[in-house]
């Protein structure tokens, strides 16, 4: 099998394992509790006061009186038909809640990841180039700072500054949403800035150290000796090679930003999955939380697969199947 195909199959198996693990976790968690699934799937906190017959009736209603194997099969069958259960809070199908919220989260995460990548890599390359002149430590310090700030708190600070004090930007929600394409970016600005700022550090640090390593490598020395102009040297010879390890960060960052989005959305009352999760936690609405976890796992896997596909674009060795 050619190298590229073997790589693709390997990644495919890995992604399927991730999904399988998420499914199993979702199935096991509600059933692993002392007191059994009755507490979380059935009647809430006051199970103790129910009579034995009532408990049996609820168990039967949710199919929890069957064997674990049967329960698992039913669970999978339901998932295949996109039946994610009903919300505890208002009985609305979980799928509807998710479908409504998911695009908002994807919009937030998507714009943040593009921005983090572009800004982080640019600054990182800059920092790497400047290292030789003993500069760029200010950048390093800021990267460390933004890496350390909890995203939700940074969001609060930005709201206080740009919303409450300066009155420049809206501080919550998305206004009219899709119906107001002109007002939407203003609403998105603060949440996206929050998420981008807290995600920058990783890209910056990895690009910087990768750039430093590449700049002292033989092929750069050779290109410099050939008289390749500096701009071309940096763009074509150094940055392109330096991007390889950054790509790995991109994949980890997707998961990080998805998690960050959950807390940042809460701060900004942004109508995505983070908001759904926050409300679900307050209402102890377990099916909603589980569905959010599952959907976000699928989203992360899909984004990783896309990132995988783009890897071949920057690393010709993957395309041609040459050994590294």
């Amino acid at each position: 099998m050619p190298r590229s195909a073997r790589y693709a199959v390997g990644r495919g198996i890995e992604y399927l394992s991730v999904l399988a693990l998420a499914l199993v976790i979702n199935f096991v968690l509600p059933r692993a509790l002392p007191g059994g699934p009755l507490k979380t799937l059935g009647g809430g906190e006051n199970v103790g006061v129910l009579s034995t017959e009532d408990q049996q009736r609820i168990l039967a209603e949710y199919g929890l009186d069957k064997s674990l194997g049967e329960q698992f099969l039913t669970y999978l069958a339901n998932l295949l038909t996109l039946d994610l259960g009903k919300s505890f809070a208002d009985g609305q199908p979980v799928l509807d809640v998710i479908v409504e919220a998911l695009p908002w989260t994807m919009l937030l995460v998507g714009s943040s990841i593009v921005l983090t990548f572009l800004i982080g890599v640019t600054l990182g390359a800059f920092g790497g180039l400047r290292r030789k002149q003993g500069k760029g430590s200010g950048l390093l310090a800021s990267a460390l700072l933004f890496d350390s700030i909890p995203s939700f708190w940074l969001g609060m600070v930005l709201i206080a500054v740009f919303g409450a004090f300066l009155g420049l930007l809206p501080t919550f929600g998305v206004g009219e949403g899709w119906d107001d394409p002109a007002g939407l970016p203003r609403h998105l600005l603060l949440p996206v800035a929050t998420l981008t700022l807290t995600g920058l550090g990783q890209f910056f640090l990895v690009t910087r150290s990768s750039m430093l390593a590449v700049l002292s490598s033989d092929h750069i020395e050779h290109a410099r000796a050939r008289g390749v102009p500096r701009a071309r040297l940096v763009r074509k010879h150094a940055l392109r090679t330096a991007l390889l390890p950054v790509h790995t960060v991109l994949m980890i960052e997707v998961g990080f930003l998805v998690g960050g989005a959950l807390v940042v959305e809460t701060v900004f009352a942004y109508p995505g999955l983070g908001r759904v999760t926050f409300n679900a936690i307050q209402a102890r609405d377990f099916p909603l939380m589980q569905a959010t976890f599952l959907v976000l796992t699928v989203a992360v896997v899909v984004m990783n697969a896309v990132a995988d596909a783009t890897y071949a674009l920057i690393d010709p060795r993957i395309r041609t199947g040459a050994a590294s």
Binding site: E14, Y15, V18, L29, G259, V263, T277, I281, T292, F293
Partner: peptide
């Protein structure tokens, strides 16, 4: 190492939320 890859890919915070809510 395959196991490590799988754990690295799982979205940490959403999973933590579900697990903390249940456990």
């Amino acid at each position: 190492m395959r196991l490590a890859d799988v754990v690295l890919t799982l979205p940490t915070l959403p999973l933590l939320i579900v697990a903390a809510a249940f456990l």
